[in-house]
Design a protein around this nucleic acid. Structure first.
Length: 336
RNA sequence: CUCCGUCUGAAGUUAAAA
């Protein structure tokens, strides 16, 4: 069982969920760790309710979850904003007296924060005896992600008063809060803090800085920062492309797209939202259609309803209302 | 008693309109 467990964990963490399941299904000597190993694979992959299914199946099969199980299941709840299951798991945790554990507490706070349940967050937070940088950061990121930037800033200040040193996760989350509030002052302070702490070169921190300057209206500063970065990934390019497009610097958005492709990176669905938006601003209907069809033809990305909306917007701005109608009629998606 | 061990916690980019 020890070897099989390790194998399941390896496969699921590498994204080969089906390989993990194959070993799992062949095992006759499953233990709690077997189930936990299976659960651990759904952490870094796309959100799915597979984790919740495994948790329930485990209970039905008569296995007693431990704190590893609960933490993994809570992660699924967080990524799906499934507070109903989260509360059920919480009840199990209290029953098993595991709620005093720091990791469990952090996972619970994260789940409630991402679901927007601040009363629960406060209650658990107040009860925790030891608060580390993870505890503070999950709250700050939860508030940033639910557009409660002012509260995020309050927690950040309180954290520093307590003498807890922010790390790159904390800084990136706070920068997101600044972007949401277009708070240039706080953003600049975080910028110098990041330099002092040696976190400036982290790609999450620097991308968040590029975004912050863009959102605060300083697209030139964002561009300068972007060009100074040694590493660019898809998210960094997306930040710059969407920043250009949001500022009406649409030609630059398209140029950036070409540069991105030339550098060997692949675009994703967010890249195309920025690109289609730029084409729409410029009334570049034919060019925009080319980009739209290249999504599935060249990059294997299925357009979402947002992409279709961009195309409708583009046709509408260009005054092509008859074409808009035809386009909507032949939609394979249900219009919203 | 201490350490180790097959499973545990957080971060950046998202169209239009109003």
């Amino acid at each position: 069982a020890l070897l099989s467990n390790a194998l399941i964990s390896m496969y699921t963490k590498l994204g080969s969920i089906s390989e993990g399941y194959r070993i799992f299904n062949r095992m006759t000597n499953r233990d709690v760790i077997t189930w936990n190993s299976l659960l651990s694979g759904f952490h870094d992959n796309k959100p799915s309710d597979e984790g919740n299914k495994i948790f329930k199946r485990m209970l039905i099969d008569g296995f007693k979850p431990n704190m590893y199980t609960y933490i993994s299941t809570l992660r699924s709840c967080s990524s799906l904003s499934n507070v109903e299951l989260g509360r059920q798991v919480h009840a199990h945790i209290i029953k098993d007296k595991l709620d005093i554990d720091g990791y469990v507490g952090t996972a619970l706070i994260d789940m409630y924060a991402k679901c927007g349940c601040m009363e629960e967050v406060q209650a658990i937070f107040n009860k925790l005896s030891k608060k580390d940088v993870f505890t503070w950061t999950v709250i700050i990121s939860g508030l940033s992600q639910t557009n409660q930037g002012e509260k995020a800033a309050q927690f950040f200040n309180e954290m520093r008063k307590e003498g807890v040193i922010p790390n790159k996760f904390t800084i990136a989350s706070c920068l997101r809060a600044c972007s949401g509030m277009t708070s240039l002052e706080n953003g600049r302070q975080l910028h110098s803090l990041a330099i002092k702490a040696g976190l400036f070169t982290d790609i999450f921190v620097s991308s968040a800085l590029v975004d912050m300057y863009g959102k605060c209206g300083y697209i030139d500063d964002a561009e300068t920062l972007f060009k100074e970065m040694k590493l660019h990934d898809t998210v960094t390019w997306n930040t710059m492309i969407c920043g250009y497009s949001q500022h009406g610097e649409d030609e630059k958005a398209l140029e950036a797209f070409s540069e991105m492709i030339n550098s060997g990176l692949l675009p994703d669905e967010i890249t195309f939202l920025g690109i289609l938006s730029a084409c729409s601003h410029m009334r570049l209907v034919e060019e925009g259609k080319k980009y739209f069809y290249s999504m599935s033809e060249s990059y294997g990305i299925a357009p979402s309803i947002e992409h279709y909306a961009c195309l409708v917007d583009m046709l509408g701005r260009a005054g092509k209302f008859d074409e808009v109608e035809r386009f909507i009629e032949k939609l394979e998606l249900t219009p919203n």
